[in-house]
Design a protein around this nucleic acid. Structure first.
Lengths: 198, 198
DNA sequence: GTCAAACATGAATTGATCGTCATATGAATG
DNA sequence: CATTCATATGACGATCAATTCATGTTTGAC
């Protein structure tokens, strides 16, 4: 749709201003939503002039793209750290799910931004999920090769398991932050590990 | 937020006009998205004057609410019909999942509208999911009581299974409509029934 | 300390949508 | 065929957000 991104700042001051705008945008959009947040809301929250926005970004959409990428990196790192010490695929599922819901509880705004990006720039949203799916799929295939899990389509499983995490994240990470996570993780991991059949 | 809904039409002509607007809104919003669709886009597509919109609706948001409710009814009916003849909980899962992805494939616009409603009127979106979760949960509890499935939190399971369906619906109902459904349903139902462990 | 490039500003311009309203038409009643 | 209520219209004024730009300030190299 749009052309190339804006050029990077060339001085420290510029970099700082750019970051102020990005932080303010994340806070405002995360709180109130993308479409209702105006550029002047963002610049006001950042404490800069209206025109300053256009020195660093071409549009609100460009800011959103950057935030989705950022959130992908943050989440990836959070999940990697959580899974690092695990000894089996099921343990990885357990710790990954816990870390994901914790991340959502800790960053409800970021989570919301990613979901809303679907309706602003589907390409970036899709890539976000595709990237996670590819990683997830590779992990499942490796576990299958090690004989840790039964044979089965890693692609379908990856999307199914991501879907579980996403909706549980919505339900227990945003709508209800009172339920102890163990009450959620336990039954969910049991479902992942052994299914519902007797 | 807003007060009461607009009064219902009192004549056949009025009812027909209202429906024309609703259909046009579903088509336009489903295709291009809620926030970028203007009321004049809707009235133009419906073939009525701008002011006519306000005879039947107070705002675009009110139209969206109505569409989400409508889609909930449609989907519920579609799923009920699909599950009707099944003989076990796992069969119900299989046919329910198949019916859901089929519904998404057949009504991508409606599906999109529901997801976008989250960012327009969270109350209606949340109710949509809560209602489905309550039904799902009841079905799982009944199956557990019959001894058809292992014991486990029906609430967590319901949300986990809905999440699976939603993301698989996105992946195989909207982004990729070429993969045969059986290639998806099989692995997914295997996961639901027996999990990933050997 | 001078100078050029980078950065910052916010008022003004531009463009678009919302929602209203005065007016007109359709349909049903007696 | 007259009356009345419901429905329909689309131009218009009010509002609001996006983007530009002429002008001013800061930075850092030399």
């Amino acid at each position: 749709m749009t052309a190339r991104a804006s050029p990077k700042p060339k001085t420290d001051r510029g970099e700082r201003t750019r970051q102020k705008i990005l932080s303010a945008a994340a806070a405002e959009i995360g709180k109130r939503g993308f479409s209702v947040t105006s550029i002047s809301d963002i610049t006001a929250a950042a404490g800069v002039g209206q025109g300053t926005f256009y020195i660093y970004f071409q549009s609100k959409e460009e800011v959103l793209r950057e935030m989705v990428l950022q959130m992908g990196r943050d989440l990836r790192q959070h999940l990697s750290a959580a899974i690092a010490g695990t000894r089996s695929r099921l343990d990885a599922e357990r710790e990954g799910l816990r870390a994901f819901i914790e991340f959502v509880r800790g960053n409800p705004g970021l989570y919301r931004i990613v979901e809303e990006s679907q309706f602003v720039d589907e390409t970036i949203y899709r890539r976000h999920y595709m990237d996670f799916a590819a990683t997830y799929r590779a992990a499942l295939e490796a576990a299958e090769a090690r004989g840790e899990i039964r044979k089965g389509s890693a692609e379908v499983r990856a999307w199914a398991l991501m879907g579980m995490a996403v909706l549980l994240g919505q339900r227990y990470g945003i709508w209800d932050v009172a339920t102890p996570l163990d009450d959620v993780i336990g039954p969910a991991v049991d479902l992942i590990g052994r299914g519902i059949q007797p």
